[in-house]
């Protein structure tokens, strides 16, 4: 996508968000929203390149699968963590795991770190220089079994299958 097209899409998204937040489609309000959106675009720092290097249809499908999987994980782990906390003896086994991220782009790294942290019971404490996630888990033994495979699946959805030696950007 060219730079101009991308800027226009970002501007439109901001305008839509403004309209939804103020809840009115009055022309004067929309004009003010257009100005505010332009101001935000002028002031914000440049965003990293989108990590998806596929056609738009495949990219949208992968994003949808990523979001659906994430929502299911949040609900499942939320219930598990609740059960751990209200259990009378609190059978937690906390610990910090090193998980290889395998991400090739900064945006992929940020999105998968966010996905890990937003899931209850797992929390990224630090990201090493080589892109290793240090993940604090409430149940370190259960997380250790699944962590590497989960991260590989996240990366495949975010950055496309296979490692082509593409570097950031």
């Amino acid at each position: 996508m060219s730079r101009r097209l991308r800027l226009a899409a970002e501007w439109l998204a901001l305008l839509l968000a403004y309209a939804a937040l103020t809840g009115s489609a009055h022309p004067g309000n929309l004009a003010l929203g257009a100005l505010v959106a332009a101001g935000v675009l002028a002031l914000r720092p440049p965003l990293p390149q989108a990590p998806l290097r596929r056609g738009p249809a495949a990219a949208a499908l992968a994003a949808l699968r990523f979001a659906a999987r994430l929502a299911a994980d949040i609900v499942r782990c939320g219930i598990q963590v609740t059960a751990l906390v209200v259990h009378p003896r609190m059978p937690i086994r906390p610990g910090i795991l090193a998980v290889r991220s395998g991400c090739r782009t900064p945006a992929g790294l940020a999105l998968s770190a966010h996905a890990i942290t937003v899931t209850p019971g797992e929390l990224v404490v630090e990201i090493g220089r080589d892109g290793t996630f240090y993940v604090h888990c409430l149940d370190v033994e259960a997380s250790a079994r699944a962590a590497e495979a989960d991260q590989a699946r996240r990366c495949a959805l975010l950055e496309g299958p296979g490692g082509g030696g593409e570097d950031a950007r």
């Binding site: 086994r93 906390p94 610990g95 910090i96 240090y134 604090h136 370190v140 033994e141």
Partner: peptide, 9 residues
Amino acid sequence: PRAARRNDL
């Protein structure tokens, strides 16, 4: 992490 069983950090 005082309570940690395992610490790779």
